[in-house]
Amino acid sequence: MGTDLHAPLGQERPAGKRRRLRLSPLFVFSVVSVAAIVGLSAYSMMGEAALKAPEMAAVDVPAETAEAAPATAAPEAAESLRRANPQSGANVERTLTDDGNVVTTYSPRSRAGEGPVIVGTPRIGQDPRLAGTPNEDLLEESPYGQLPVVGEDGLRPMDQYARPWSGARGTRIAIVVGGLGLSQTGTQKAIEDLPAEVTLAFAASGNSLQRWMQVSRRDGHEILIQVPMEPFGAPDANADPATLLTGLPAEENLGRLHEALGKITGYTGIMNYLGGRLLSDPDTLEPLLRDVAQRGLLFLDDGTSAQSTSGTLAKAIELPHGFADMTLDAQLEKSAILKKLDDLERLALRKGSAIGVASAFDESVEAIRQWVEEAGNRGIEIVGVSALVEDPADY
Rank of each mutant, 00 (worst) to 15 (best):
H6M: 13
A7G: 06
P8C: 09
P8D: 15
E12G: 05
A15P: 00
R18W: 00
R20A: 14
A35N: 06
S41C: 03
M45L: 14
M45D: 10
A50I: 06
K52W: 11
P54M: 09
P54L: 08
A58G: 15
E64T: 03
P75G: 12
L81D: 02
L81A: 15
A84G: 08
A84Q: 03
P86V: 02
A90E: 14
R94A: 14
L96D: 01
L96R: 09
T97P: 08
G100C: 13
R109M: 13
R109N: 09
A112C: 00
G113M: 02
E114W: 00
G115Y: 09
P116C: 03
P116W: 02
P116H: 02
T121M: 05
P122L: 07
P122Q: 02
D127S: 05
N135F: 08
N135C: 07
D137I: 00
L138K: 11
L138P: 04
E141P: 00
G145A: 10
V150W: 03
G151I: 10
E152Y: 06
E152I: 06
D153V: 08
M158N: 02
W165G: 00
G167S: 02
A174W: 08
V177C: 00
G179V: 01
G181D: 11
T185L: 12
T185I: 05
L194S: 06
A196C: 01
A201T: 11
S205A: 11
N207E: 11
N207A: 14
M213V: 08
R217Y: 15
R218I: 01
H221I: 02
I223T: 13
L224P: 11
V227N: 01
P228Q: 06
P231L: 11
P235R: 14
P235V: 13
D236N: 05
A237Q: 13
N238A: 14
L244I: 06
L244F: 07
L245I: 01
T246R: 09
T246A: 13
G247M: 04
G247K: 02
G247R: 09
P249L: 10
A250V: 15
A250T: 15
E251T: 11
A260Y: 04
L261R: 02
R277A: 15
P282A: 06
L288E: 06
D291T: 14
V292N: 00
L298G: 04
F299K: 06
F299Q: 11
D302H: 12
T304D: 15
Q307W: 05
Q307N: 14
A314E: 03
K315A: 13
H321M: 06
G322K: 08
A330D: 13
Q331S: 15
L332V: 08
A336H: 14
L338E: 15
L338H: 13
K339G: 02
K339A: 14
K339V: 01
L341C: 04
A354K: 01
I355T: 07
I355W: 03
G356A: 09
A358R: 04
S359T: 08
A360M: 12
D362P: 00
E363A: 11
S364F: 12
R369S: 15
R369W: 08
R369F: 09
W371N: 01
V372W: 05
I380P: 05
S386Q: 12
A387E: 09
L388G: 04
D391F: 02
A393L: 09
D394I: 00
